[in-house]
Design a protein around this nucleic acid. Structure first.
Lengths: 162, 162
DNA sequence: CCATGATCGTTACAAATGAAATGATTGTCA
DNA sequence: TGACAATCATTTCATTTGTAACGATCATGG
């Protein structure tokens, strides 16, 4: 007497949350290998650097809101980057609770070295997709996000760049 | 004098590894909220349960190889599940290094309760995609995985079910 | 046989993580 | 103005995580 009917079985291999987690983990790990060893930078630190490169003079809260990292993780990433000399912290003149975080010259240098590696990695991945699939992927991302926006259990989506 | 030309900037919001990580994290968290509170089960434990449901009497190594969790994580998840009474451990008669891990009656019961929640959650997510987009997503997953298979830095893909 | 190496599951230990608390600063409104 | 709540960044502390090592068992080849 079987414990389950076939219809009650759930195939993990075809289960969307699982598949997304697996592909994201593979891509992240493969990507981070490009800079982790060479520059001693974690994924969180890379996100902070990438955000600083396009928005100079931001606070921990700004980064937190824009880069899908919780406040504590950003704070620690920034501290490590400061110790490594890649980032500068200053007090915000208008509001002393805030930090003005910026890339140092060395931070910019590391960023400029990573960008071509990252872009190349992404281009390599995307090269296997045709135009229709890339367009579909765009729509899929947007549709899934918008569906998750209705779910209070889902983490909030980052606000659009400003 | 700007530090960077536009062409040297990398937009994190449109960067594939980042986007995959964000959507996967949102989906996983939203999904795990369905069973985490009610059954006190983590994502790793859910994966173990889901695998045991379709492959009774497996070892830690089997689960590790099939469910994208490292050996230690599986070992700990199984131990927690055993303490919770959802899983049974026995020695493999043919090889005493191996464990025969199975779902207990209570484990099956929890599984049967989670499956409709998980299937419903997935169906709800997929409902926003049309047939073409779902088909595209299938191809995208397969193409990205097959590209990553060439990258020694990427974690290995799980072998097909058998 | 039996010595050597490989495999399995667990443990040890350091590092990373997350939730809540903290201290410092600012906004609010009575 | 001044009490009180809110916000920012950090710290604290318990838990989780990953790497490496470990003991136990098995496979292999001499």
């Amino acid at each position: 007497m079987p414990k389950n009917d076939q219809k009650d079985l759930l195939d993990l291999d075809s289960f969307l949350p699982y598949r997304l987690a697996v592909i994201a983990a593979r891509v992240s790990k493969s990507m981070s290998a490009l800079y982790a060893a060479k520059f001693g930078i974690s994924i969180a630190e890379w996100r902070v650097i990438a955000h600083l490169a396009r928005s100079e003079r931001v606070s921990v809260r700004d980064i937190h809101a824009r880069v899908n990292l919780d406040k504590v993780k950003v704070s620690r990433a920034v501290s490590r980057l400061e110790e490594a000399g890649l980032v500068l912290k200053a007090n915000n003149a208008a509001d002393n609770r805030l930090l003005d975080i910026t890339l140092s010259e060395q931070g910019w240098s590391v960023y400029r070295q990573i960008v071509p590696l990252a872009s190349g990695f992404e281009a390599d991945l995307l090269s296997v997709l045709d135009d229709a699939e890339r367009a579909a992927l765009e729509r899929i991302f947007e549709k899934l996000h918008s569906r998750l926006d209705d779910d209070p259990a889902a983490p909030r989506r980052s606000p659009p760049e400003g």
